[in-house]
C-alpha cells in the first residue's frame, strides 16, 4: 500500500450530510471506470451479433471475426501495422535517444533546441499529415524542388509508391513523436547519479564509454516504457494516415484503425467493425499485458530486495 494512513473504515454512505461528498467522489469515478467496462463489453457483444447499419440482437458466434480476418483489407492492414509499428517505434526511439544525448551535452541553446524538437508534439496529427503530404508529394514537394534545381532524375515518390508509402507514415510519425521520446530519455539521463559518473571518470572511462557502459544501462526501464507507449500510438494510428495518404495508394497504408472505421461507417457493418475493434484491443493487450507483468515482477523483486 503506497499510502501509510489507512483511514478508519468509512461506510460508503453515512446519511444525507455525506451526500455531496458521496456524489462528488462516485460520479466521476463511476463515469470514468464504468464507461471503460460497459463500452468494452458492449462493443464486444456487438461483435458477436449480425448488426449491420444499426446494432441488433442475435448471435452469430465467431462469424464476424472469421469474416474480418479473411478480408484482404484486414490482412494488409495488419501486415502494414507490423512494418509501421516496428519502423516507427524503433526509429523514433533511436532518434529520440540521439536528440536526448545531444541535448544532454550541456550545449548552448539547450532550451531552444529542446523546444524545436518537441513542438511537433503540440500539433494535431491532421496538421502533421496534411503538411507532410505536401512535402512528400512528388509533384509539388521535395522531389519537385530538387528537380527544379536541375537534378531532374531525382526521385522521392514514396507517397505514390505502393511498396514505400507506409514509410511516409513512419517519417511523419518520427517527426511528430521523437520529441516525446527525447523528453523522457532526457529526464532519464539527467537522473543518473552524479557520483556514478564521477566514479567512472576516476576509473578512467572516456565520455563514450561512460555513456555505453554506465549511463545507457540505467536507462533500460525508460527505453522500454517509451517503446510501449509508442507501440500503443502505432496501434491506434488513424488521423495521421487519414490526413497523409488516406490509406492509399490502394491499400498500401491501410491500418487496423482505418479498417474498423471503414467497416463501421463506410460499409455499414457494425458487427464486423466491432470485431475488428476487438482485434485491435487484443493486439494492444498483447503489448500492454506483458509490459504490465514485467513491471509487476520488477516491483515485486524490488520490494523483496
Amino acid at each position: 500500500m503506497s499510502h501509510a494512513a489507512p483511514s478508519p473504515a468509512r461506510p460508503l454512505f453515512a446519511g444525507l450530510k455525506r451526500l455531496p461528498e458521496f456524489l462528488v467522489i462516485w460520479v466521476p469515478l463511476l463515469l470514468s471506470a464504468g464507461h471503460v467496462v460497459v463500452f468494452t463489453a458492449w462493443t464486444t457483444w456487438i461483435s458477436f451479433t449480425p448488426s449491420t447499419l444499426v446494432p441488433v440482437d442475435g448471435w452469430v458466434g465467431w462469424r464476424n471475426y472469421t469474416n474480418v480476418l479473411a478480408t484482404r483489407n484486414w490482412k494488409i492492414a495488419f501486415d502494414n501495422l507490423l512494418i509501421f509499428g516496428a519502423g516507427f517505434v524503433i526509429l523514433t526511439a533511436l532518434v529520440g535517444l540521439l536528440l536526448a544525448i545531444i541535448i544532454d551535452q550541456r550545449i548552448r541553446g539547450e532550451n531552444v533546441l529542446r523546444s524545436i524538437f518537441l513542438y511537433p508534439m503540440a500539433v494535431s496529427f491532421v496538421v502533421t499529415g496534411t503538411v507532410w503530404s505536401w512535402l512528400l508529394n512528388p509533384g509539388m514537394g521535395i522531389q519537385k524542388l530538387v528537380n527544379d534545381w536541375g537534378w531532374t532524375s531525382f526521385r522521392f515518390d514514396w507517397l505514390i509508391d505502393r511498396d514505400m508509402a507506409i514509410w511516409t507514415i513512419v517519417i511523419a510519425g518520427i517527426w511528430q513523436s521523437s520529441g516525446f521520446a527525447m523528453a523522457l530519455f532526457l529526464a532519464g539521463l539527467r537522473s543518473v547519479e552524479a557520483d556514478l559518473i564521477k566514479a567512472a571518470q576516476i576509473d578512467g572511462a572516456g565520455p563514450v564509454r561512460i555513456y555505453t557502459r554506465v549511463i545507457l544501462p540505467t536507462l533500460w526501464p525508460i527505453v522500454i516504457a517509451v517503446m510501449v507507449i509508442l507501440l500503443q500510438f502505432a496501434i491506434k494510428t488513424f488521423d495521421l494516415v487519414r490526413a497523409l495518404t488516406g490509406g492509399g495508394p490502394g491499400l498500401a497504408t491501410q491500418l487496423p484503425a482505418l479498417v474498423v472505421y471503414d467497416f463501421m461507417f463506410q460499409r455499414g457493418h457494425l458487427g464486423r467493425g466491432s470485431a475488428a475493434a476487438v482485434l485491435m484491443l487484443l493486439t494492444l493487450l498483447g503489448v500492454l499485458l506483458p509490459y504490465g507483468a514485467w513491471k509487476y515482477y520488477q516491483r515485486r523483486r524490488d520490494a523483496r530486495a
Binding site: 464507461h35 471503460v36 468494452t40 491506434k236 472505421y261 463501421m264 467493425g273 475488428a276 475493434a277 494492444l284
Partner: peptide, 12 residues
C-alpha cells in the same frame, strides 16, 4: 481507460 482504443467506444 487511458489505453482503451477509441474504436472500442465508437458504437456505444
Amino acid at each position: 481507460g487511458v489505453f482503451l482504443p477509441e474504436q472500442m467506444r465508437l458504437i456505444p
